[in-house]
Design a binder for these strands. Sequence first.
DNA 1: CCTAAATAGGACAATTTTAGTCCAATATGC
DNA 2: GCATATTGGACTAAAATTGTCCTATTTAGG
Lengths: 156, 156
Amino acid sequence: MLRISKITDYGTLVLVHLARCDDGRLCPASDVSAGTHIALPTVQKVLKILTRGGLVESARGAGGGYRLVRAPEQISAAEILDTLEGPVALTECSHTDSHCKLEPNCQVGGAWQKISQAIRAAMNDITLADLRTPPNEFPLRYTILHASGHATRQSK
Amino acid sequence: MLRISKITDYGTLVLVHLARCDDGRLCPASDVSAGTHIALPTVQKVLKILTRGGLVESARGAGGGYRLVRAPEQISAAEILDTLEGPVALTECSHTDSHCKLEPNCQVGGAWQKISQAIRAAMNDITLADLRTPPNEFPLRYTILHASGHATRQSK
DNA sequence: CCTAAATAGGACAATTTTAGTCCAATATGC
DNA sequence: GCATATTGGACTAAAATTGTCCTATTTAGG
């Protein structure tokens, strides 16, 4: 549930790479591709999005490349997701009032908001610096967003 | 970002309806459809999923219908999402090791886990009883999962 | 036993979203 | 001028989502 798109997944890898090889130097997309093993066209796409989103800055032409605009400690997971996934609403009725017009008694919307805020609060506390934490610190292998008590069946 | 599917959205409306008209009585799908203004075939689909997921119980035949298996206070948002969205991983490398095999230095996986746990913790604290809370309690109109500081541009 | 009321299970097509690549334009350094 | 890079957007193929429908099964009641 609540899965993120591949672009977002790639984006974090790219950001982590920039955070590592960043001494204030510019890092061309080809470098990022080599470092992350993500295909170059995809890296280019991701970097464009990150640049437009204001998380990295770019320099064109020979010797150009990309660089983080801020220290990794000052880039939150919330920002990263906002930039890469876009400001998509959690529920449908947030931007179209479609069936909620038919159901004025819909008392659910407010609660989704509650959930949203809780999620956002959690993501504001995590920074890009945390994202490059060695995996050893997190023993579990799967990132499945699933309660421990339920039967965990892989999709597909 | 992190949007939920329509099925999940419908599902919560259906569950809230069941929570309301539930005196231990069985509620046929047609009733739920009428009460929520969601098309009957869709309601049927949702109820089937909820039944298989163990959140509601059903009785077939004339006089049959659906009923919550537990009190609304004892059904968490996490369970609801698990049932309706399915146990989908937050990141791709959680169930296929595709590009993570190419990148043993991928130090991101652990952090997604951290985020996942934070999100899950937030959703464990919210129950179906909270979901039917009157909207007045939550003044904001939009459920956009988006930080306050950024430019909020509607998708599409 | 027969009929009407219901759920169970799954098939299905249409729509939408996502993924990944590629191309033409622009900018920069040497 | 030329090689190096980013910029912006177009584009197609694949995948997921949506919503509906059909058939089988079950149950209550006369």
